[in-house]
Nucleic acid binder design. Structure first.
Lengths: 158, 158
DNA sequence: TGTGAAACCTCCTGCAG
DNA sequence: CTGCAGGAGGTTTCACA
């Protein structure tokens, strides 16, 4: 799908604040409310906007701590990789999972209620999985930047 | 703020799909539309809901690739750490930044338009920063799980 | 908590530029 | 593609029970 500068500006706004009215958005980018709605619908239907979500503070729901885990598989074979991707998707404690090149095969962000809780998690998720060669846990002391705001360069759009 | 089971159920819904009508939410959790809206407003005001955002597909806006970078500082001193946190917040290419214990001091998720673009970024962001001792780049081959869904255990709420 | 009313917003459609 | 206008339905905030 081909985007123009107005789409880009709308995206950069709604990706950080999705509760503006169409009229507000219209005055911000210089369009009518109707045009804004048409464009947002187009962006949603085309999958440019993948989802619209509320961000919940983890501490408020009893998950104050997070770990960053570097995972290495026994063998980097397609079926093993796919199987591990599946288990990532099915495990709610894993908030974030990346398949990467380099020292590790996967990098995960895992939330926990406590250290003991995380320890229990590692037993079930890592030690009982024969595909996993090893993992290294780094405790997250501060989530400096969370969120998924993509930098948007307006000059790249007509 | 004290949450109950209904709040927890509302949160678990809106954190993955924030476009339900209040009435839909009401029938899902067993409340009237008005009560749902009152609760959501309370959760927003209390900061339990930190933000409401649209998730934009990075590929659609010209940022098809991502790197995961392990950063080590020259010295882990409070003022140096704080200065680096600030530069993370001010740099849009850094989508995600964590201050961690262990082998590295920070872990970043950086988006780029291309490898050359990333190389330019590393010169400006890492090599020109005297606080940085070193960094190790891992190319993200697949973003298996992105998003911010916190696992919510309903049993933990009255 | 629920109900009901009023004001506003959304979303879709048709029409015109 | 744009804006304008109309209508159905959802949101949001009141007061009141």
């Amino acid at each position: 799908m081909q985007l123009d500068r107005l789409d880009a500006r709308l995206l950069s706004i709604v990706q950080t604040h999705n509760r503006h009215s169409s009229e507000e958005l219209g005055t911000m980018v210089g369009l009518s409310a109707t045009a804004v709605q048409r464009r947002l619908k187009r962006l949603r239907d085309a999958g440019v906007i993948e989802a619209e979500v509320a961000v919940v503070k983890p501490k408020s729901v009893g998950r104050p701590i997070a770990m960053l885990v570097l995972v290495t598989l026994e063998r980097e074979r397609a079926d093993i990789v796919d199987r591990f991707k599946q288990s990532i998707r099915q495990t709610p404690e894993v908030m974030n999972g990346y398949y990467v090149t380099g020292d590790a095969d996967f990098v995960l962000i895992v939330t926990a209620e406590s250290m003991e809780d995380y320890e229990v998690f590692t037993r079930k998720f890592f030690y009982e999985n024969p595909d996993i060669k090893g993992f290294k846990t780094m405790v997250v002391m501060d989530r400096v930047k969370t969120g998924f705001s993509v930098p948007i360069d307006f000059d790249h759009f007509s």
